[in-house]
């Protein structure tokens, strides 16, 4: 069972690590937008790349957040019923609804891979005036979704352990409930 424990904590650590780095993109987006305003307003020389690069970074920033947020229980839900239940019943319910989670995320993963591989096969660019490669941003869809799927698997394993009282996972050992926003 220690493999499962290692998987759960490994995935959570991975998402935590990735998230902490991706979160810093906010500084880049801020800097590029400010730069564009400066170039256009002060120098009358707008650039072709700042807004487009900001847009691309934002896309990566958004889609890569899924796993990190799940690791920190940050995806909001309706807790009317949920919060009333004892932990084991709640885990059983979460095992049931994870079906919907996996239907969505696996469909997205499948077609995200499809979209990204098509883009990579032609080294797709944006064909704007700046014309940068767009495939890395498309690649972020399956990568971000993949991280989310992994975290979903980790959560499913946790829920199974709670529901059936298995010993590979104990909620008090969880490292995923560290930070509260």
């Amino acid at each position: 069972m220690s493999v499962l424990t290692a998987f759960i904590s490994g995935v959570t650590r991975l998402n935590d690590f990735v998230g902490r780095w991706i979160a810093l993109l906010i500084f880049a987006m801020f800097a590029f937008l400010l730069l564009e305003v400066g170039f256009r307003y002060l120098l009358n020389a707008p650039t072709v790349w700042t807004n487009e690069l900001t847009q691309m970074l934002f896309g990566v920033y958004a889609v890569m957040s899924g796993g990190y947020i799940m690791a920190h229980r940050g995806h909001v839900n309706v807790d009317l019923l949920h919060s009333q239940l004892p932990p084991r019943k709640r885990a059983v319910m979460d095992i049931f609804t994870s079906l919907i989670f996996f239907i969505f995320t696996l469909a997205l993963l499948w077609f995200g891979i499809d979209m990204a591989s098509e883009s990579i096969s032609s080294w797709e660019t944006t064909y704007s005036a700046w014309n940068p490669p767009i495939w890395p941003v498309k690649l972020a869809i399956p990568v971000g979704t993949g991280l989310l799927v992994l975290q979903g698997l980790a959560k499913l394993l946790e829920d199974i352990a709670i529901a059936f009282n298995l010993d590979y996972y104990r909620p008090d050992q969880s490292i995923s409930e560290g930070e509260q926003s």
Binding site: R40, V48, A129
Partner: peptide, 16 residues
Amino acid sequence: GVLQKFLTEAGAAASY
């Protein structure tokens, strides 16, 4: 797109 590049190269300040 192409016109943004053209207008920039022609000397105006074109932005998207």
